[in-house]
Nucleic acid binder design. Structure first.
Length: 210
DNA sequence: ATGAAGATCCGG
DNA sequence: CGGATCTTCATT
């Protein structure tokens, strides 16, 4: 099933030589919440590690008090100066790297924060980086998944989707997505911009149904 | 210069 | 529940 947001050109995956259809940067030329929601169920491949995206959050560059652009001129500059699909990686609490992709749509710009993956391949690498053996502790949080995949500040401001390190493709099934309120923030927590794959084991926290 | 806040995680 | 540990920004 091809569409405007995939590029069938590059690379094959491990499975039986089928051509992978990576998400194009054009995927990220829509509203942040649309991108975040549609990323659920997609497969994120990164330097030999693979996971299904089961949790993501949207942040809006305009009017969203939880977005870095709200209080950080450098973040606003970043949005202006980079293309959709560019990584935005930053250190949180001086401890954890958090991974976002820049979104630039006609209705507004913003970010998608990757919050949890279901590990699919490269589990031993993830285990050694995380120093955990339980699968559910590998990628079930925004700081955990970056550690599991080896993502850090060197990956900031890169067109990760078009580089040799990785890519994102659509999954086989379209999962049931639960919309809920964003978590871990003190402002803008009312917006229903956290998206979870229903019943996924590796969510950072179970969705709050309202 | 200094301080505060922050999209988190872990261990006690 | 508190501490870790670093960056950005605002204030002095």
């Amino acid at each position: 099933m091809k569409d405007a947001f995939t590029r069938p050109d590059a690379m094959t995956t491990g499975s039986a030589g089928r051509t992978a259809e990576w998400l194009d940067h054009r995927f990220f030329t829509r509203a942040p919440w649309v991108c975040a929601r549609e990323l659920i169920g997609c497969v994120f491949e990164w330097r030999g590690c693979v996971g299904e995206i089961v949790e993501a959050e949207a942040y809006a560059a305009d009017g969203d008090p939880a977005c870095h652009t709200f209080s950080r001129p450098s973040a606003r500059r970043f949005v202006e100066q980079h293309a959709p699909g560019t990584s935005y990686v930053y250190l949180n609490y001086g401890v954890h790297w958090l991974f976002n992709l820049l979104v630039k749509g006609p209705a507004g710009h913003g970010f998608v924060l990757f919050r949890a993956l279901e590990p699919l391949a490269g589990l031993e690498t993830m285990r050694s980086r995380r120093r955990r053996k339980n699968v559910r502790e590998l990628c079930s949080g925004p700081g955990r998944l970056t550690q599991a995949l080896g993502i850090n500040g060197l990956d900031h401001a890169k067109l990760v989707l078009e580089g040799p390190d990785g890519g994102i493709r659509r999954g086989q099934e379209t999962p049931e997505v639960v919309d809920c309120q964003r978590i871990g923030i003190s402002k803008g927590a009312d917006l229903p911009w956290r998206f979870c794959k229903d019943g996924a084991p590796s969510l950072s926290r179970p969705p709050d149904r309202r």
